[in-house]
Structure formats: C-alpha cells, structure tokens
Write a protein that binds this DNA or RNA. Structure first.
Lengths: 251, 251
DNA sequence: TGGATTAAATTTACTCCGTATCCTTACATC
DNA sequence: GATGTAAGGATACGGAGTAAATTTAATCCA
C-alpha cells in the first residue's frame, strides 16, 4: 500500500528461492533462527506469503533436506573422482565405471562435504526421516537411494544383501558425522585449554579416563576414520555371485 | 486457593519426578507434546513451577538424555550377560570380566533396548550432543563414556586407539538406530500393502529399484545387523599390544 | 509459642511463533 | 475493457517459553 511497487512485486518468490533463503539463514544463524517470520523478512515478504511454497514449517524442514540432497547429487555429478564421460543416471557421473566400493566411498565423501558446508543441517537430515515415510521423502533423497541401490544391483548383489549394505552405508555415514560434529569445547573464547574444555567440571576422581582423554577428543582425521570404517563394514559383506564385471578388485 | 490443600502441596515436585513425567509424556504422545505447559498439567502444577528443576526447555531435553543414559546404565548393572559378582564400577556389572569386544556388544544391546523402549527419544539422544559440550553432558552419559574408555584402557589400547574405537562404537550405534527407526510406511491403517507403503507415489520409471525393494525395507533382523556391523568395525582395529589378559580370544 | 527466614509454587504478563481466514493487487486471456 | 486467477498482504488468534513479582507453607530460632 506504501511500497512503490517495484518492478516485480509479483513473482519474487519461488520454491527454490525460498529454500535457498532458508538454507542461507540456517547457515548464518543456526536452526533456531529459522522461523517463518524471520525467513519472510529475509525474503522481503510477509510471513504468509511463504505458505504458497511450503505447506507448513515441518514441510520447510523437509525442504532443507531436499536442498541438502540436491547439493549432494550435484556434487556427485560434477566432481568425478575418475575420468569418465557423462551419463544418463541422474546421480553420479561415472555410472557403472567405478567399482561399487569406490562409488560408495565417493558418495560418502560428497555427503560429508555437504554436511560440513552447512553447519546446522545435520540434525535435520538425520532426524526428519524418522517422521517422513519413504514415499514422501524429497525427490533428491530418493534419487540418491535409487542410485545406490542401482550400483549395488549392477554389482550383482541380491536384493536382501543390497538392502543390508545400503542400511549399513547410511547408518555409518550418519553416525560418523553426528560424532564428528559433536561439540567438544565449552567456551571457545577461553585461551586456557583446560578451561576451554571445561575440564574443571569433570572431577578427576569420577572420570579419570575421560579427563585424561578429552583434550585429545578432536585430534583425529575425520575422513580417514570415515573411509576406514566404511571399508571394514563393506569388506565383510558377502561377495556378489557374479561380481567382478565392473569390479575386478574384489578383496 | 480452591484446592483442599491435599497432604503435600509443597514438595510434590523433584527433579526425578519432573524427568519421569517428561519421559512418560514423550513416550505416550511424542516429542511435540512435550511443552512446559503440558508437562506442568501432567504434574498437577503451574508451568513456572518446573523451572525450579530445569532452567529452560533445552535443559529439559538434556534431562531426557540424562534419564535415557540412567536407564542404559541401570540395565547394564542389572542384566549381566554373564555370571560374575558385583563390582565397584558405577556402570557394567561384570567389570574386567568380559573381554572388551563382548562388553561393547553388551552395551550396544542395552543402548538399543532403551531406545526401543522410548519411541521418540532417539532424535534427542542423537542430536543434543551437537549443542552440549562434553563437560556439560549429563552425568550418566559421562559415566557410560568413562566406562567404555576404562574397558578399552584395561584391554591395553593406547589413548589414540581407544578414542578411535570409542568414536566408531558410538557412531555405529547411533547410525544403526536412526536407520532402524526410520519410518517406512505411509498410512499404517491401509490394508493394501502397496498403498500402505505409498508405492503409487514412487513412479516406477524414475525409481525402479526403490519401488522393487521398498516392500522389503523392514524385513531384516535389527539386532543381527547391529552386532554384525559392530564386529566388523571392531575386528579391524589394531590389537592392543598387551591384550589377552582378560581377552584371550583375540580374533 | 511465635515471629523471621527461606523454599516451593502461583500469578501475571510479555514477546514471539505458526498459521487460518479474508482481502487486495496485478497480470493473462478473450 | 471485463473477468478470472495467482501472488502476496493484512489481520488476528491461540499457544509457546519464560521473566518478574507474589503468595503460601514449612523450618528454624527466640
């Protein structure tokens, strides 16, 4: 009523724009800053306008998951670990080229990279599937699942084994990242290491080992442990009956 | 002002009582039902009364984590998988008796059992540590960590390896349970399997493998996969230099 | 015994959140 | 140009978390 009706009052918004703003807001100020009202302000719009592009706040969270997996898929499409031509598969450039183990490693790395690129996205990605049935998951998430199952199928695994591998793969990735991202430090501004870790709060009598080890909690190579654990989980999977078409390196 | 001042209007509340009510409420009606006001009603008290026992709602969530790990520890104390006398250790009955692998298996099972006993606790247990520094975690959680590190120390692992095992252990347990508890079904009341799974929502053209496999998503043995994966993660850990005092069965 | 002290719980009230409902505006179409 | 429609705005309501001040009841000490 007051605004000079700038060029496009109409058509400012779109689902991608809304999701992008939501992701940006969460990245900048954390999950608790993500409110419909705040997001509307960021978009220069009244709160209710957002509801044209997402039906509720819960749906908006699923939108974050959607954006997350889109980014994972993008990364898989563009950053091939190997040299191979393009592919028909919506996910993963070098389809059918990499042996299945290597492809799963590649996916794990992409997943981790996107998690690290968005500091507070992990809790959402880890917990929303507890509330959303498979068939209603965001398309990009389904595409990645489809891709993984396709890779395992092509490698020759039967259905049951493919699912077992899939579950182990997802569980390990999620669990690892949840552990990697756990907050260790108490007050990051404190210069003294002991105080920073809040060690004075851990009585040595009750927690001797913990007290001794906490200072080392953050000293490890995340990627190395991610891949090492993944390999040990995958190595004890029964080999596919007619493997080694794409993957001659079987253990 | 109206109530007949039943025996004890004073001293009705206590931290354990508040936490128990919170757990019960979440178990009965889910996490979203847990509001300060609702919890107060359940306790027969005005909302602000709760703040004497927890400083905020976030603190209340940490209280849930506290209650959770208490229960895990209780279970470890009382349900020994083996016959051994009592122990001084606050956690785990047969201290130093079980080889480290078996003890970790026992803990994993207890953890899973408690998760399954409280349908909506997992997201809280999985994500709160992302916000709470180690030194401020609830005592029961710290006790369990201490116990695990002690077991690994006694088994002869050096600090770095013990931490690596600890991280892998926690990550696997959390990840597995998050995957186990993912919602598969769309409408549980629908008698037709296809509709129940919402398969009509998954176009076969885009998701051929997914569509074929979703009906088998829930057909697996959770405990078997939990333990199998745990074993494969642990088996590739470097053996402790002077192991085999308690654990002669090393690989 | 009886007032003072203190702990426990209530009262009141404020701000912010999600969102239902209704309304206005501008564009596309004929 | 009338009309239908889609995008966004205005208004409003109930419920959430919680700060602050207050009442109530037990405890302690004279």
């Amino acid at each position: 009523m007051d605004e000079p009706d700038t060029p496009e009052r109409r058509g400012r918004l779109s689902r991608p724009r809304v999701l992008a703003a939501a992701v940006a807001l969460v990245d900048r100020e954390g999950l608790t800053a993500l409110t419909m009202r705040r997001l509307a302000t960021d978009l220069g719009v009244e709160p209710m306008a957002i509801y044209r592009y997402t039906s509720s706040k819960e749906a908006l969270l699923d939108g974050l998951v959607e954006a997350f997996f889109s980014e994972v898929n993008d990364r898989l499409r563009t950053t091939a670990d190997t040299d191979a031509g393009p592919s028909r598969d919506p996910v993963g450039a070098p389809v059918g080229i990499l042996p299945w183990r290597a492809e799963l490693r590649r996916i794990a790395r992409a997943f981790a990279a996107v998690v690290h690129a968005h500091r507070e996205i992990l809790p959402v990605v880890a917990t929303r599937p507890l509330a959303v049935p498979v068939a209603r998951r965001p398309a990009p998430a389904l595409q990645l699942t489809e891709h993984i199952l396709a890779v395992l199928g092509r490698a020759g695994f039967d259905d049951a084994t493919a699912l077992t591998i899939y579950r182990a793969f997802v569980a390990w990735n999620l669990g690892r990242l949840l552990v990697d991202k756990r907050q260790v430090v108490d007050d990051p501004d404190e210069p003294d290491l002991l105080l920073r870790l809040g060690l004075h709060r851990l009585p040595a009598a009750e927690y001797p080992r913990l007290r001794a080890l906490v200072p080392k909690f953050a000293e490890y190579d995340e990627e190395q442990e991610l891949i090492a654990g993944l390999d040990s989980l995958l190595n004890r999977m029964p080999e596919p009956p007619l493997d080694s078409f794409y993957d001659g390196s079987a253990r």
